[in-house]
Nucleic acid binder design. Structure first.
Lengths: 234, 234
DNA sequence: TTCATTTCCGTTGTCGACAAAAAAAATACA
DNA sequence: TGTATTTTTTTTGTCGACAACGGAAATGAA
């Protein structure tokens, strides 16, 4: 709520303002620092970032394009609510994209792709060891995003990245209340996936991607049901 | 290039300007009335629509979000080029979405969905009979979009619609130079797909969706190779 | 008090203007 | 004549201001 730029007016490069606001707001939304349903005020943001409403507005339009905020005409714009009814559909799409991207990575990856994938896997492994749930979510997403990039299909990549963004919000919602220790199993499955990709074993990559996705869905399903039980008993 | 509103200033409802510009520009881009790579001038559009640059700009930001235009910082914004190198990736994604959406429609459709699907099929059939290539493209997309809607997965639906939009541009590019008579076979395949959906035969829907998609890809492939031959011989 | 009407207020949508950036044109220099 | 440098032009990015819209508060009638 405080100004980003108190005191003197910092010079900003022309055109950088929109990206600044967009990136920060996007992160705040996906990290649930901005609660779903909460209102977004343009003038407030303008003061906070020390700029006019125009670039703020452009950033908001972009976020609305990704469905991260909803804008009632002539009325307040607000952070989109998480669509719980749509979760089955979401997981269906997510698992399919896990499969497809992993399979394509096995088919079309190059040597340099594997290096990048391994870097992300190392970071994910460290996050699991540190039991840092938030970091796990981020590094896991980066890991699979790298795999999708290795598959060399821009359409799948774009779609998958959008799904992972949405998922970041859902996962964070649950992991912040229940800091469950995420199974070491995910790390091992990642290793298997890397091996299948490297061996260019398409069938194995497909199978592992599917299993890995369903594994995650199942994990979240457990969290959800436990959540329900708690709600009923209190 | 002429003003939309010559003479007197027509009253527009507050907030409707952006949608107006967005819809029209989107259509012009997808219908190839605006050539890929051609420059887009904001002031020119402002004059044409009789409004300020601000709403124009917002429409452009949205179009950029969908990848229909590209905006060089501080420099001209232009209609995105069609990515020919990415066509295999595109068709791969398209066929997959044909499969998935048809399959889900068989699984989750309701009675009212079939009515809508049939309406689009009737329109498509009429377009084929009239040998109106442009109308075929539009009605075919609407037909499959309706099937995707019946599948009740907002994520697939959104992704598929975006793919169909892109495809509209590619298809139009070829059908406008070679007004090939599109096979009656597509109409029949559509009928088979409808029957499979109505019978809730998931396996058949999956198979038909895949075959239908591959059929279209193959058709385009033929057009492309013929195009290449011509280029070489001239 | 309760409900309908009016007034006020906060927020968005749109506008015209100006400054910055980059290309294009013009000039200077060899 | 060809190249480097300056100037002009064109187009974008940002700003402050104002009107319109919708809700909230205030007012009035029963």
């Amino acid at each position: 709520m405080t100004d980003i730029d108190p005191g003197q007016t910092t010079e900003r490069k022309r055109g950088s303002g929109v990206k600044l606001v967009y990136d920060l707001l996007r992160d705040e939304i996906l990290d649930l620092k901005l609660e779903p349903g909460s209102a977004i005020d343009e003038v407030q943001l303008a003061n906070r970032f020390g700029m006019s409403r125009t670039p703020i507005r452009e950033a908001l339009v972009r976020l609305a394009g990704e469905g991260l905020i909803e804008t009632l005409p002539n009325r307040s714009t607000m952070v989109s609510n998480i669509d719980f009814l749509g979760m089955p559909a979401y997981f269906d799409a997510l698992v399919l994209m896990y499969r497809v991207t992993t399979r394509l990575a096995a088919q079309y990856h190059r040597a340099e792709d594997l290096k990048i994938i391994r870097v992300h896997q190392t970071e994910f492994s460290a996050a699991v060891a540190a039991q840092d749930a938030l970091e796990m979510i981020a590094t896991n997403a980066a890991f699979h995003s790298a795999i999708a990039a290795a598959g060399r299909n821009a359409y799948y990549f774009g779609f998958f990245d959008r799904l992972l963004g949405e998922g970041r919000r859902m996962l964070r919602l649950y992991y912040q209340s229940y800091d469950d220790r995420l199974p070491q199993r995910f790390v091992e499955e990642h290793e298997e996936i890397i091996a299948a990709i490297e061996a260019r074993d398409i069938a194995a990559a497909d199978r592992l991607g599917k299993a890995h996705g369903e594994q995650i869905v199942e994990q979240i399903g457990r969290l959800l049901t436990r959540n329900d039980r708690l709600d009923l008993e209190l």
